[in-house]
Nucleic acid binder design. Structure first.
Lengths: 156, 156
DNA sequence: ATCATAATTGCGAAAAATTCGCAATTAGAT
DNA sequence: ATCTAATTGCGAATTTTTCGCAATTATGAT
């Protein structure tokens, strides 16, 4: 992916640091490690997975606090996947995307739709609610192709 | 108990019962009371609000269990409003709608967009993920008109 | 480099949210 | 009226999230 980093070895580290400092947040070890997890995965991540995935060991309280900071800083965004668990992922204006969720096996994938702008425009027209519309979330739910064979006996 | 109240006085009760029996669920007092709450509100409801709103007193465990059943039965659906709290609302195929959320004051409103079908079609085209697409969720986030005056000093 | 300081972390405990097992109750069918 | 399986209440157990505070650390100034 891009850029003239000299070695190009672990630029997620550099990237994390940059993101943090840009947001006026201290670039601490935990934070960098946390951001690395998000930079390394294209899928939404729960606090739980974050804890299991992070390379350092950060206290759970730190994970909660940090994620909250990163949300407030606009670096992360919260994602809903149809279950009770809150998920988070990097907020990427340029690659705005949505999610498809298999309600059978829980598999998730990203999806990019073209008409996002028109969606927001439509929303603005359809209601007088907003002074300013910041963003939107869109998820599709259904049964994925890999799950078809399983559906013989299951009714639910 | 039930009679053909032709007066149409409290038909939420009748409606609840009907919904339940249709789904093969026993029409118990708690369930009816719970459904009445949902029938009486157009907005998504959290377990917490449900507990405060319900006219009878049902044990919290019952609220959790019942909501889960109603979800499984397709009577309720889960709604995400941008915070950590799970919300629920009646699943109404005919009046499929979405939500606009003010991230400043938390106000919520329903919104109906016309192009829902084409949205799902687009999603189906954009990815090979689905065998069957059941539903989708769409929420818009921003600052509502009532909140504009407050925004003088607040930057975040 | 060293220092000052304000932010961040770890820690365990507290609080809140959710689930569980089981006995008592109840809706719906016979 | 009775039977039966589903549902409820209850308190306890579990899980998730928050909190206070002392120890640590990143950052900017010296």
């Amino acid at each position: 992916m891009t850029d003239h980093t000299d070695g190009g070895r672990c630029d997620t580290d550099a990237h994390s640091t940059q993101l943090l400092q840009h947001a006026g947040l201290k670039a601490t070890g935990s934070r960098i490690a946390i951001l690395e997890v998000f930079l390394g995965s294209s899928k939404p991540i729960s606090i739980d997975t974050l804890e299991q995935t992070i390379r350092t060991d950060a206290h759970l309280a730190t994970l909660y606090r940090t994620v909250e900071r990163l949300l407030a800083a606009g670096i992360l965004m919260r994602v809903n996947l149809g279950d009770e668990t809150p998920y988070y992922e990097l907020r990427d204006e340029e690659h705005h995307h949505h999610h498809v969720v298999c309600t059978d096996c829980g598999r998730i994938e990203d999806i990019e739709l073209c008409h996002d702008d028109s969606l927001e425009k439509e929303a603005l027209h359809a209601s007088k609610f907003f002074h300013r519309l910041d963003t939107h979330a869109l998820e599709f739910f259904g049964t994925c192709t890999s799950c078809v064979p399983h559906l013989h006996h299951i009714k639910n």
